[in-house]
Computed example of a mutant assay.
Amino acid sequence: MGHVNLSAYDGYEQFSDPEALEAYRRAKVGELDSFVEWVRETYEKPIRVLDLGSGNAKWLVRLEREGLLAAGTGIEVSESRHRFAETWIADWNLTGITPICGDLLTASFPIQVDLCLATDIVLQFLNPIREGALEATLKRVADHLKPGGRLLIDLQDLTSLKDSKTWQEFDEPDPWRFLLWEAPYNPERNTVALRKTFIGRDDNRLDRSELELEVLSLEQLTAMLVAAGFDADLETLDHHHDPTETRVVARKPTR
């Protein structure tokens, strides 16, 4: 498939036990309470949403379940995660979500979107795949948002991860118990190669993957957003998932 970033999450979510699968789904949408509260406070009616790198589609699933989604499009390059999303949407009888399996660098975007999601540091995947891809994607997003539309972004400060090694443990019902990773820094490309090893909860199976992520500061991102047509003033949201991550919202001018 080319660059490692395009295949890193294939096979990530696999369940043989229906009860464990359902518990996992509910845990994933349960993580999004603060996001849902922000959407309720920000918008007066259900919204049109584009989710870049939508993964299992949990953001769109939660919005539809809450009655906040007019229409949602999720673009995900991983075939296995796309299938997971399709099955989840069908099992929960959701009708407002369109999952697309494709490369967000080339996939078609819907027009007149109220909110675009770029969560889980997806924007930092882009320039390592193709030089200038992040800037081009920000411009495409701005072109497809309504006037006054918003782009929600998760940005990770990778400076503290350069050349580091660490591990973490996941809570049940996640099928993986441990994650071990190292992050060698490439100064020529200004990227961190995030090399991950997942260890299964019940069977100790191993799954290895590698990502190449751009080291990007909030100041650099803000300059890119302004160049793409967004306002310079960003809204910062509470984000407790990872202390190295910042969640910001950029807005397209109303005129």
Rank of each mutant, 00 (worst) to 15 (best):
D207G: 04
E86V: 15
E219K: 14
E214V: 05
V61R: 10
W38V: 08
L68I: 04
L216I: 13
G229V: 13
P18M: 12
V39K: 02
L206H: 02
S209K: 08
E41C: 01
V4L: 15
S160W: 03
R25A: 02
S34R: 13
D51N: 04
T191V: 15
N186E: 09
K146I: 13
V248S: 08
A90N: 07
V61A: 05
G149L: 09
K146R: 14
R195T: 01
L123N: 08
L6I: 05
V192M: 07
T222L: 03
P173D: 06
N93H: 11
Y9R: 14
M1N: 12
L69C: 05
F125E: 13
W92F: 10
L94T: 15
T244Q: 04
G229L: 01
L179I: 05
Y9V: 12
V77W: 08
L105M: 11
M1Q: 10
R205D: 06
S80K: 07
G74H: 01
L225Y: 01
V122M: 15
E66C: 05
A57W: 04
L206G: 00
V192I: 15
D33Q: 13
Q14S: 12
E172W: 06
L218F: 07
D10H: 05
A85N: 08
K45N: 13
L123H: 07
N186F: 04
G67H: 03
I97T: 06
A227R: 14
R140I: 04
D114I: 04
F109C: 09
E41M: 01
A20G: 08
Q156T: 12
R150W: 00
D143Q: 07
W59S: 07
Q220F: 07
G149E: 00
E66V: 11
N93K: 15
E235S: 10
T137V: 11
C101M: 08
T119W: 05
H144I: 03
I97E: 03
T246K: 12
L145R: 10
F230N: 07
D207P: 01
E66R: 03
P187K: 14
L161Q: 07
C116S: 13
K165D: 03
T236C: 11
D91N: 14
Y24F: 15
T119Q: 14
A70N: 03
A136Y: 01
L155S: 05
G53C: 11
H3A: 08
E44P: 01
S80P: 04
T95K: 14
Y43P: 02
H239K: 04
Q168E: 14
D163F: 03
G200L: 01
E44V: 06
V61Y: 04
R26I: 02
A20C: 08
R65I: 00
I75H: 00
E214F: 02
Q220C: 12
P253C: 05
Q156C: 12
L50S: 02
V61C: 13
A118T: 06
L105Y: 00
E169R: 09
L68F: 01
K45L: 10
A57D: 06
S164C: 10
V192R: 01
L225D: 10
R247Q: 12
K139D: 02
L50A: 07
N93E: 15
L21R: 14
F230D: 06
N186G: 03
D242G: 04
P184R: 10
